[in-house]
Design a protein around this nucleic acid. Structure first.
Length: 542
RNA sequence: GCGGGUGUAGUUCAAUGGUAGAACGGCAGUUUUCCAAACUGCUCACGAGGGUUCGAUUCCCUCCACCCGCUCCA
């Protein structure tokens, strides 16, 4: 059984996180609280770096994405529209005899684990009353704590993006296709928080909702929907094209996201992919590709290959979300497209009839599945399809949704490496090095005076620290032997250290104003001029 | 929520029905000290609450947390 070893690996990581200040248990002095974790000094830096890199890549480096920072508490109607009020509060029944737990509305369909010939409803197990399992945290807005004041802590950040879709589009002066990005906390009262920070009750998400034209619109404007080749891992990323349909956009975002992970040190070989099957997909979703990371606790498939657990889901969610908010709020969520209206007028009749029909079917299908009666559904779908001919449509969306804390855990697991060395006396010791990519490393450079009792060396070291500080996170350390300080920085994952010695001060005139630069991963050292230090480091940490 | 396991310094471990030791770490100091050097000194723990007992870290109960399995995972 390989399980104890994998468990050991997680235990080592958890222990290091505590010891070095990456992650602490929340409320530890009171015995902790299940499903909540705090980030210590190094963890806070690591997390900040990750979020900033995401924000940089997803918004600032692009013309077609705008940012948003919405509130955690919102109108509860948002969660009715999104479906969370309904799906997050399933009544459950426990069986005291067989220890099973079942959805109360399915006891007539699920077979009893002990007597598969009978359904749960019929078997003789002693069952509890149905109890509501609401996975959304509740609170009250206002002092009266009545049912009208009930509110929920958001279980995902995405819905605020949909709710603010029109405002953002207008103020950012964007046109479809474009996206809205948001980073923020989300809360789920998980039944079983597990695996350290992998599944917790308070967590952070980095979500993009990228709005695209429905395929019918692309066809009307461009004649056909493009199906581009997926570029190989080493070829340059695709440039988005105006004639892309949802499949091309979906593939594009999966690829973009994988490149992001590679850019912060997660090699493709550490990742896995899972394309959700039709059974797994939500009814409104067209496709969803999960990007997985092979965690120490991840399970293996029949062939013994590690499967991985979800870092991010890239979902093609059709026009479901905006449609829901349009229906529940009564506010139009569609957009108007000049190009579409002009193109539509020039379409051959059979083409426009075909597109009209397909759009109509999609809209009717959505409405029926959302519980709208047949007749009003077809009336509404007719209106929607007529709107298409006038240049109006509800955008579809591609949603790359990533968990920050899961990514942090992936980076920790990926960086963790240990080497055991045996000295002359036969005493062996294990050293840990956190091989973070310099972009995410909490500390970029350690500044170390060789000796702390030599004022000139210390003074010079402090000057260097102060010169680098505005540009990167610097850690100054003068305590203990130089080797000990290197080792401390290795455990923190600091990619570079500079050491100031007597040569720096001119004891060896050729080396005046130079420092030792030491690499974390192999201990290699070279001599670098102080005047070149800042640019040398900046080139490697960005 | 159910079943199993675990809970002793910051970390990893030890011992004990008579209130706890070590290693490593951390802090301070000495040292022209470049890979956890050496030496000196110091700091830090029985998850919480009850019960049994003259006395509980040790036995019992409850709770909390962590790990594993089941369940859940929009």
């Amino acid at each position: 059984m390989a399980e104890p070893r994998e468990n050991l690996q997680m235990e080592k990581i958890v222990s290091l996180c505590k010891r070095r200040g990456f992650v602490f248990q929340s409320s530890e002095i009171y015995g902790g609280i299940n499903g909540f974790w705090d980030y210590g000094p190094l963890g806070a830096e690591l997390k900040r770096n990750v979020k900033e890199l995401w924000w940089q890549a997803m918004t600032r480096q692009r013309d077609d994405v705008a940012g948003l920072e919405a509130t955690i508490l919102m109108s509860p109607k948002i969660w009715e529209a999104s479906g969370h009020v309904a799906t997050f509060s399933d009544p459950m029944i426990d069986c005291k005899t067989c220890k099973g737990r079942f959805r109360a509305d399915q006891t007539g369909e699920i077979s009893c684990p002990q007597k598969p010939s009978q359904c749960v409803q019929q078997c003789h197990g002693e069952k509890t009353e149905a109890r509501a399992f609401n996975l959304m945290f509740q609170t009250y807005v206002g002092p009266t704590a009545t049912a009208e004041d009930l509110a929920y802590l958001r279980p995902e950040t995405a819905q605020a993006i949909f709710a603010q879709f029109k405002n953002v589009m207008e103020t950012a002066r964007q046109k479809v296709p474009f996206g809205i990005a948001q980073v923020g906390k989300a809360f789920r009262n998980e039944v079983t928080p597990r695996n350290f920070i992998f599944r917790s009750r308070e967590f952070e998400q980095m979500e993009l909702e990228f709005f695209i034209k429905p395929d019918e619109v692309i066809e009307a404007i461009h004649g056909a929907v493009a199906t581009p080749e997926i570029p190989g891992p080493d070829s340059p990323a695709l440039e988005p094209q105006p004639n892309w349909g949802w499949q091309a956009w979906h593939q594009y975002w999966v690829e973009e996201r994988v490149r992001f992970y590679q850019g912060i040190g997660l090699d493709r070989s550490t990742l896995g992919f899972h394309r959700q099957t039709p059974q797994e997909l939500a009814h409104y979703a067209r496709a969803c590709t999960d990007i997985l990371f092979k965690f120490p606790f991840s399970k293996k498939d029949e062939q013994g290959n590690v499967i991985g657990d979800e870092l991010e889901g890239v979902a093609a969610r059709s026009d479901f979300d905006l449609s829901q908010h349009q229906r529940f709020s009564g506010k139009p969520m569609g957009v108007f497209d000049d190009e579409l209206r002009a193109a539509w007028a020039k379409l051959p009749k059979e083409k426009s009839d075909d597109l009209w029909r397909r759009y109509y079917e999609n809209r009717k299908n959505y409405l029926l599945k959302s519980g709208v009666e047949a007749e009003p559904a077809s009336r509404q779908a007719t209106d929607d399809a007529n709107g298409l001919a006038k240049g109006q449509y509800i955008p579809h969306v591609i949603e790359p949704s990533a968990g920050v804390d899961r990514l942090i855990l992936a980076l920790l697991a990926n960086a963790y490496s240990e080497t055991t060395e045996t000295d002359d006396k036969g005493k062996s010791e294990t050293r840990v090095t956190m091989r973070f990519h310099p972009r995410v490393a909490p500390i970029k450079v350690g500044v170390l005076p060789l000796l702390k009792n030599k004022p000139d060396i210390v003074k010079k070291a402090l000057e260097i620290r102060d010169a680098l500080r505005p540009w990167m996170n610097v850690f100054y350390d003068e305590a203990g032997s130089i080797g000990r300080r290197y080792a401390r920085q290795d455990e923190a994952g600091t990619p570079f250290c500079v050491t100031i010695d007597f040569d720096t001060l001119g004891e060896n005139p050729e080396r005046l104003d130079t420092v030792t630069l030491r690499y974390r991963d192999d201990g290699r050292q070279e001599r670098l001029k102080i005047s070149e230090l800042r640019d040398w480091l900046l080139a490697r940490i960005r």
